[in-house]
Nucleic acid binder design. Sequence first.
DNA 1: TACTGTTTTAGTACCAGGTTCTAAATAGAT
DNA 2: ATCTATTTAGAACCTGGTACTAAAACAGTA
Lengths: 198, 198
Amino acid sequence: MPLIERLPKKQRHQHLLKLIEANPFVTDRELTRELKVSIQTIRLDRMELGIPELRERMKQMAEHSYDQVRSLPLDEVVGEVVDLQLDKSGISIFEIREEHVFSRTHIARGHYVFAQANSLAVALIDDEIALTASADIRFLRQVHLGEKCIAKAYVRSMNGQKGKAKVEVFTYVGEEMVFQGNFVIYRSTGEDNIEGGM
Amino acid sequence: MPLIERLPKKQRHQHLLKLIEANPFVTDRELTRELKVSIQTIRLDRMELGIPELRERMKQMAEHSYDQVRSLPLDEVVGEVVDLQLDKSGISIFEIREEHVFSRTHIARGHYVFAQANSLAVALIDDEIALTASADIRFLRQVHLGEKCIAKAYVRSMNGQKGKAKVEVFTYVGEEMVFQGNFVIYRSTGEDNIEGGM
DNA sequence: TACTGTTTTAGTACCAGGTTCTAAATAGAT
DNA sequence: ATCTATTTAGAACCTGGTACTAAAACAGTA
């Protein structure tokens, strides 16, 4: 019953975990070359650590991405739309996370706040294709990591079927307004009447 | 040489394509039950249609999602800055890919084009912290899947150390201007002199 | 030194989900 | 009937494993 000096195994386990995390596509055989142990040891280690075999790892990744892709169409909108009255008004919520901020300052990058507002403005328009033509925006104060942005959008005008819609968006964190934007959205009812737009 | 009535095969091919698209995780054996043909026929069909085996499909999906995750952290700046003269001008290139477009129309979502311009405008300012205060933007024409956006930014004015910088950005696809924006960027030289900004 | 227990290695059988190849059965048109 | 395309069958082989048995190598200790 060796009490001391049983570290190499634990160290190998750590090493193994790192190797597989670094490259989930590595086979057991490739790992033997890296860790200088037999393939059986690799397999025992994987069992102890609960790491599934290569094919299972790939399957899980594939299923994961498939689920994501399935839900991506919802991602045409940045932020979660919690209320939507087409051609009238809408509300969306967007939480600022690690990936949305400048790592140094933890302040949200402007384009995410813009993206939320833009997405909501576009979603509001009940039309085949709705694209942003122009926007006039103000960032009123910085938004920080962890803050929840609540964007409220209102359609201010709608001219005809081949026209532009004006949408005003206000984004709040709590009581404070952090962003304000006036969007002009092109609404094409199928025709090629767009001169510009996104 | 059967000239007529050779449709069942083509129909089966169509059916097969749809089944695999609907569920990429289906095995050949499962497909035999759906299509009422032998497993060899399924395999011949897959070959003719160039559809890889289940494991290869899963591997490709896994690699795809892995690549996506890998490339996300590079996103502090949207687009690749290819030229940068701090406080003067800069150029960045951004290729519109699948994940940047509306899946239905293949037109780029506006906020990506904005993000490229915004990122470049911020990168241009040689300061500790640079945040977008406001912007006035125009989307001049749609940008489509596969197009390369070349954004050129110029600093138009700079007032003092605690001031705002005005940056003008033009984005082109080839010769065509697709976006134009006037950004006001706050440059804080460490102090807390920002009233707003991203 | 011999005994004990852990750890590592080796080897075999087996599995899923295929590929590759050869060959036979079947269908359809002429 | 015959010719050709299509479909089916079967066997050998592949990868990257699992499951299991068994032997060796190591360590600590009595």
